[in-house]
């Protein structure tokens, strides 16, 4: 039960970090970690079918898709884009 509490807190913390980090690459890597831990949660909830699918799809395939998309969409580096939206100067890439 302690394990479940730690896992639940870690999931929420990871989600918070991945959704608020200014580094796009870091966000994607955190998302893959999130998917793997979620697979653990499925095992705890006695859903091994979903755990298998989540490990292969949620962490693996989605991760590959996101990493690939990041490399294509922001090839130079990450554009800081944290909320609150528009409180800072516009990102340099947005001007051309």
């Amino acid at each position: 039960m302690i394990f479940d509490h730690v896992l639940a807190l870690t999931l929420v913390g990871l989600a918070w970090r991945l959704l608020s980090t200014s580094h796009l690459f870091k966000a994607v890597v955190l998302f893959i970690t999130f998917g793997l831990l979620l697979a653990l949660a499925w095992v705890r909830l006695e859903a091994p079918d979903i755990a298998l699918a989540e490990a292969a799809i949620g962490a693996g395939l989605t991760g590959a898709l996101l990493l690939d998309a990041r490399a294509r969409l922001e090839p130079r580096d990450d554009v800081p884009d944290i909320a609150p939206a528009g409180s800072g100067p516009p990102a340099p890439d947005a001007s051309h």
Partner: peptide, 11 residues
Amino acid sequence: VQRHLLRKVLA
């Protein structure tokens, strides 16, 4: 709140 489309997909 996020404006970058990749972040919206993550969300």
